[in-house]
């Protein structure tokens, strides 16, 4: 029963990946499917920019923002969970709680008056907003380490630095990764809206469809973005599971 379920999900995954790649690389294959949604005699497949280049730029934006956000957020979380930084712990909790109440769209809209239009403000908004879930999870990870393990690490005579690298970071990693996953999913969605402020992302296809009443564009853009998000989310969940399994085996 269990084995069967795994097989099915693998087949579905492969099919979705193939569908996504062909949607991006060979959009004309799907003309027949989008035809009914296009206006009469109107264009069916988005051709103002190649879907491949839009996808790459979209994913690149998300990857860049998420990598920088992860590095900064984890470093900050390490700082505020050291004895020297504890004074800042309540304030940083307040900032993350309040910050995550800010709607991502609003963050994006507010970045425009400050930074102007284009890819820049989107990148900054993605980075700033992406910090919060990673930071929150990293703080949780670093402040809920099992006391017995920490005591043992100290007893072994490991220095602070060694404890951080060899014990604390590996132990907190699963929780941090959950934050990274959340942050990546948020960034994928916010980057889509980024095309309203002239960032080059897949949202452009959806917006073009909305502006010209061409539902075929809307569906095309929506399907591609949705598939990317679902598959990336799934991949990150699998990665977390893999790391967790590996860690708990080596721990036994």
């Amino acid at each position: 029963m269990k084995k069967n379920a795994i097989k099915w999900s693998t087949i579905v995954r492969v099919l979705l990946v193939v569908l996504l790649i062909s949607l991006v690389v060979m959009p004309t294959w799907f003309s027949w499917a989008f035809q009914p949604f296009a206006p009469e005699k109107g264009p069916i497949i988005y051709e103002r920019a190649s879907l491949l280049s839009l996808s790459l730029s979209h994913l690149g934006l998300v990857a860049l923002a998420s990598i920088v956000a992860t590095l900064v957020a984890v470093s900050l979380a390490i700082l505020v969970t050291r004895p020297l930084g504890t004074a800042f712990l309540p304030l940083s909790r307040t900032i993350t709680n309040m910050g995550q109440t800010f709607p991502p769209v609003a963050v994006l809209a507010l970045a425009v008056p400050a930074l102007g239009f284009g890819t820049g403000p989107t990148l900054v908004a993605l980075f700033l907003y992406g910090l919060l879930p990673i930071f929150e999870n990293a703080i949780t990870g670093f402040s809920t380490l099992p006391p017995a393990t920490m005591e043992a690490a100290r007893g072994l005579g490991l220095s602070r630095w060694q404890r951080l690298i060899r014990v604390e970071i590996p132990l907190a990693l699963p929780v941090i990764l959950t934050g990274v996953r959340l942050s990546v999913v948020i960034a994928l969605g916010t980057a889509t809206i980024g095309s309203t402020v002239a960032a080059k992302t897949l949202g452009e296809v959806i917006i073009a469809g909305l502006l010209t009443n061409n539902t075929a564009y809307v569906l095309q853009g929506g399907l591609i973005v949705g598939l990317f998000a679902v598959l990336i989310y799934d991949a990150l969940v699998q990665l977390e599971g893999l790391l967790l399994a590996r860690y708990s085996i080596s721990n036994d």
Binding site: V185, G189, T192, I193, G209, L219, G222, L223, G226, A229
Partner: peptide, 14 residues
Amino acid sequence: QTIPSLAMFGIMIP
């Protein structure tokens, strides 16, 4: 929940 909002809103239209 994972589907980007703009895509979700768009797909609802047709």
